[in-house]
């Protein structure tokens, strides 16, 4: 009798906190999408009326569209660079039993541990000391370093699951290294590559600490622009930008899920 009471109390507490947790996870995204359709001029919630005016306003805001395009270009470049260089490195590291391989692996993973603000500042300092002018290229360089750990982990995990006998077979049957790579290795690690490209793109597109120090007036990126807008005033156009970002991210997730089973990759990270 007493035991079942304690059990019921326990279930109640667990259930309540879980409900609250699930609401907490969902609410902010929902709130952003809802407020982006407000007809009012403040962030008053619930919105006093509904309209698409902030999306229309957004289309006319060159000072937000420019940074968004810069962000897309930088994220694309950083994704390609980190996927190609990181993917090649992951393949090499996975096969090697040398001690040097483990040291390099730790080095490539360390941007994840280091507070990104420190890395951003250190890049600014080194570019200044060497007299290199800040540009989109220096920004891509910084973002690539931040994205590499994801590629190393995810592609590395795919390579670990690859049966080495398949490669040996292909080579012993007379296929060249390049042909074997193209027809055997690459298709088998595709999921890892797609998933890591997806995560790398989001990481770069969303990056603040590195861009904060490396972006100048000509290479302003979207998160920094939005941060600057919100520091000055609570501009409703940010809600429209957020609505667009949420929608595009969900669309990207669906695509990546179809081509690479991303959720399993990220879940098992």
């Amino acid at each position: 009798m007493q035991r079942s009471l304690i059990d019921r109390l326990y279930s109640g507490v667990v259930g309540t906190i879980t409900g609250f947790g699930m609401l907490l996870l969902l609410a902010p995204t929902l709130v952003v999408v809802v407020i982006s359709f407000t007809g009012g001029i403040t962030l008053k919630f619930p919105p006093p009326s509904w309209s698409l005016r902030w999306y229309v306003e957004l289309l006319q805001s060159q000072e937000i569209i420019e940074p968004a395009l810069t962000s897309l270009k930088v994220a694309t470049a950083a994704t390609i660079l980190s996927a190609v260089l990181g993917g090649a490195a992951a393949l090499g590291l996975a096969r090697s039993k040398l001690k040097l391989a483990r040291v390099l692996d730790a080095l490539f993973m360390s941007p994840m541990v280091l507070p990104a603000m420190a890395f951003g500042l250190s890049l600014l300092l080194v570019f200044n000391l060497l007299g290199i002018r800040l540009s989109a290229a220096t920004l891509v360089l910084g973002h690539t370093i931040i994205c590499v750990p994801f590629v190393i982990r995810m592609v590395g995990a795919s390579v670990q699951q690859l049966n080495p006998v398949l490669v040996t077979c292909s080579l012993s049957l007379g296929a060249s290294h390049w042909y074997t790579f193209r027809r055997i290795t690459l298709p088998l690690i595709r999921r890892g590559i797609v998933a890591s490209c997806f995560v790398a793109f989001l990481t770069s597109f969303d990056n603040v600490p590195v861009s904060l120090f490396l972006a100048d007036a000509r290479t302003e990126v979207l998160p920094i622009k939005l941060w600057a807008i919100l520091e000055g005033s609570l501009d409703v156009r940010v809600a429209a930008v957020s609505g667009v970002i949420v929608l595009l991210t969900l669309a990207g997730l669906v695509c990546a899920e179809i081509f690479g089973g991303v959720s399993r990759q990220i879940g098992s990270r």
Partner: peptide, 13 residues
């Protein structure tokens, strides 16, 4: 969802 978007949601809340 982007960090700025999530933070913005909390400004609204």
């Amino acid at each position: 969802t982007s960090t700025v978007v999530r933070t913005f949601a909390w400004i609204v809340i």
